Simulated assay, not measured.
Amino acid sequence: MDVVYFDPATGFIEAVNDVLDADEAEENIRPGITMLFGSADHRTQYVSGGAVTDRPAVPPMTGTSYDLNQLPAGSSIVVADPEGTETTIAAQDDTLLLIDAGTYHVRSISPFPAIDFASEVTVP
């Protein structure tokens, strides 16, 4: 039987273990951690409302413009220009537009439970 150990304050999955029975599951609980029976993938899921659910993915930047409104609250975008200089842009009601030719490395930094993206964008 699988058991999911998670932080009840955030839903962050600490571990997923295969145990023999409920007694073994109880023995493995650390202070501040809660459990539920079932399986989960800690990389793509978390616990919300007592159930395992998929973590939301931040929409990736796939073209030369990006609506910064898509970012979760408290997030930012880090853009590395073709020379490697990084610029951090906070989530806001604005659009990021890459206009100078070259290849940019773009990544998001978001609070849990969001799944961040990292992409490469080429401006012709």
Rank of each mutant, 00 (worst) to 15 (best):
E26P: 01
T87E: 05
G74V: 07
V4Y: 09
S65E: 11
I89Y: 06
S65C: 03
V78F: 02
V47S: 00
Y104A: 02
Y46Q: 05
Y104G: 02
A51Y: 08
V79Y: 04
I89H: 00
P72D: 13
P8C: 10
Y46P: 02
D21T: 04
F37A: 05
R30T: 07
D93N: 14
G32C: 05
D100C: 02
M61W: 01
P60Y: 11
A80L: 07
R55V: 10
V78Y: 04
T87M: 08
V78I: 15
Q92D: 13
A73C: 04
G38Q: 06
D41V: 08
T62F: 06
V16D: 02
V4K: 01
P56G: 13
D93T: 09
L20D: 13
Y5I: 09
I77V: 15
Y5M: 14
L36Q: 11
G11F: 00
L97R: 13
I77Q: 02
T103G: 12
P82T: 05
N69K: 14
L68T: 03
V16F: 01
A40K: 01
E27C: 04
T44V: 10
R43L: 14
D2R: 12
G74K: 10
T10F: 12
A80Q: 08
D94Y: 01
R30L: 12
N28T: 11
V58Y: 08
M61Q: 13
D41C: 07
D67C: 11
D94N: 10
E24D: 15
P60L: 06
Y46L: 06
Y104P: 00
L71H: 01
P8G: 06
G32L: 09
Y66N: 06
T53H: 03
T10Q: 06
D41L: 09
N28Q: 15
E86I: 00
T87S: 12
T44L: 12
T103M: 12
D21P: 05
D94P: 00
T95M: 08
A9P: 05
G50T: 08
G63T: 14
D94I: 01
Q70F: 08
Q70K: 15
Y5L: 10
N69V: 15
L20R: 12
T34D: 12
Y104M: 02
A25Y: 03
D94W: 02
G49W: 09
L96A: 11
T62K: 12
Q70C: 07
I77R: 00
N69C: 07
L20E: 14
G63M: 08
D23L: 09
D41N: 15
G11N: 01
D7R: 04
I99Q: 13
E24F: 07
E83Q: 14
L98H: 10
T85L: 10
I13M: 00
N28I: 10
I77T: 07
D93H: 10
A9I: 08
P72G: 07
A15D: 09
